[in-house]
Simulated assay, not measured.
Amino acid sequence: MKYQDIIQQINNKVYQPVYFLMGEESYYTDKISDYISENVLTQEEKEFNQITLYGKDTDVATVISEAKQFPFGSAYRVVIIKEAQEIKKIEDLEIYLDNPLPSTILVICYKYKKIDKRKSFGKNLSKKCILFDSKKLYENQIPSWIKTEVKEQGFSIDDKSANILTQYLGNDLSKINNELSKLVLHLKKGEQITPKIIEDNIGISKDFNVFELQNALGIKDVLKSNQIIKYFSENPKNHPFVLTLSSLFTFFQKVMIYQNLKDKNSKNAASALGVNPYFVSQFQTASRNYPMKKLFKIFTYLKEYDLKSKGINNTSTADKELLKELTFKILH
């Protein structure tokens, strides 16, 4: 079952005896368990009918014992198990799944991993409870996710800002959501998150960031490229060399993909590159400036400087000097 469907059921007061929430992405697992915690019972009912246990401090027997208790002064009892991946022999819960108490809503948060659905316990979970598998989003899915989240909160965000946040925060949805929460505090409903707002409130420079470095390299703007890497060198904690390398690899990989496309219309190119159509022109320009032969050299440089950053064939050159050398080789 999908996240939206689970929330809709809860809003309609259609509750299931057991929710097993698992997967590598903890954001939605937390959202569902928090939503159940906040919306099923009234504040008065929670005092006697809602309990939260933690996997490292409990066991299957205790969970079953709590789940089998009848509610007091309420139609339901809510039992939430956080960090359930820490429970030993969690498959022993199967005996409860066979005959759950209808008045109990048992929420099991099995985070950062998943149960093997090919095995007996996994198969029974699929049949006997609401099984939610929260998968990590790929990085190219994050900008559109950010735009959707911001819209749901009553604000908007431009494409460039969504990509800046993605470059710096990766695909950790909880981390992104925390930063978005900081940003919207400074906005009125309906207003837009811009690079300037991001710079003022999170500290990611609107002019000197990885996204702007990619753009400067793409158009072969030597001055701008050197200004950005100078800023990076002066702020190494916010711009670690290894992350810059990773970002440049992804950028030039997409430039190569664009060059190899037979159909280069905006919609098809955006789909192939995993970017918003707004950014296709960036790769179109870079494709003209970097022929295939040069791209192969760039990938060689990236590998070489990745090794040097790890101390291989390099005993004394600092990261900031490595970045200068790499940028020079890419541009010339």
Score class of each variant (00 low, 15 high):
residue 172 D to S: 02
residue 222 V to D: 14
residue 233 S to H: 12
residue 209 N to C: 12
residue 172 D to A: 02
residue 196 K to W: 03
residue 201 N to A: 01
residue 173 L to M: 10
residue 235 N to R: 09
residue 233 S to Y: 13
residue 235 N to K: 10
residue 166 T to P: 10
residue 231 Y to R: 00
residue 211 F to A: 09
residue 182 K to D: 04
residue 215 N to C: 01
residue 166 T to L: 05
residue 196 K to S: 15
residue 169 L to I: 11
residue 191 E to A: 15
residue 217 L to K: 02
residue 166 T to H: 08
residue 210 V to K: 09
residue 178 N to E: 15
residue 208 F to M: 11
residue 210 V to N: 14
residue 177 N to I: 00
residue 213 L to I: 14
residue 215 N to K: 10
residue 190 G to H: 06
residue 197 I to N: 00
residue 227 Q to F: 13
residue 179 E to N: 15
residue 170 G to W: 04
residue 222 V to N: 08
residue 186 H to N: 15
residue 171 N to K: 08
residue 180 L to S: 01
residue 211 F to W: 14
residue 172 D to Q: 02
residue 205 S to W: 00
residue 215 N to S: 13
residue 235 N to T: 11
residue 221 D to F: 09
residue 212 E to F: 15
residue 198 I to K: 00
residue 180 L to P: 05
residue 216 A to M: 07
residue 202 I to A: 04
residue 199 E to G: 08
residue 187 L to T: 01
residue 194 T to R: 03
residue 221 D to W: 02
residue 179 E to P: 08
residue 172 D to P: 05
residue 228 I to Y: 14
residue 204 I to V: 10
residue 181 S to G: 14
residue 167 Q to L: 14
residue 207 D to G: 08
residue 213 L to P: 05
residue 190 G to K: 10
residue 181 S to P: 10
residue 172 D to Y: 01
residue 219 I to A: 09
residue 210 V to H: 05
residue 189 K to E: 13
residue 190 G to L: 10
residue 221 D to I: 04
residue 219 I to W: 12
residue 235 N to C: 10
residue 226 N to T: 05
residue 200 D to V: 09
residue 208 F to I: 10
residue 220 K to D: 07
residue 226 N to H: 14
residue 178 N to Y: 05
residue 188 K to H: 10
residue 217 L to G: 04
residue 169 L to A: 08
residue 173 L to I: 05
residue 225 S to P: 03
residue 196 K to D: 12
residue 235 N to I: 00
residue 186 H to A: 11
residue 213 L to M: 12
residue 215 N to P: 07
residue 224 K to G: 10
residue 176 I to M: 01
residue 220 K to H: 08
residue 212 E to T: 11
residue 179 E to K: 14
residue 167 Q to Y: 12
residue 205 S to V: 06
residue 218 G to K: 02
residue 205 S to I: 01
residue 230 K to W: 05
residue 169 L to P: 09
residue 226 N to A: 01
residue 189 K to L: 13
residue 195 P to W: 00
residue 219 I to Y: 15
residue 218 G to W: 06
residue 179 E to R: 03
residue 193 I to A: 02
residue 175 K to W: 00
residue 167 Q to E: 14
residue 206 K to L: 04
residue 204 I to L: 13
residue 230 K to F: 09
residue 206 K to A: 09
residue 230 K to A: 11
residue 224 K to N: 09
residue 218 G to Q: 12
residue 175 K to T: 08
residue 230 K to L: 11
residue 226 N to E: 03
residue 181 S to A: 14
residue 218 G to H: 04
residue 195 P to K: 01
residue 235 N to Y: 04
residue 235 N to P: 07
residue 174 S to R: 11
residue 224 K to H: 06
residue 224 K to P: 07
residue 184 V to A: 02
residue 178 N to P: 06
residue 191 E to Y: 08
residue 196 K to Q: 14
residue 232 F to E: 06
residue 197 I to A: 04
residue 187 L to N: 01
residue 175 K to H: 07
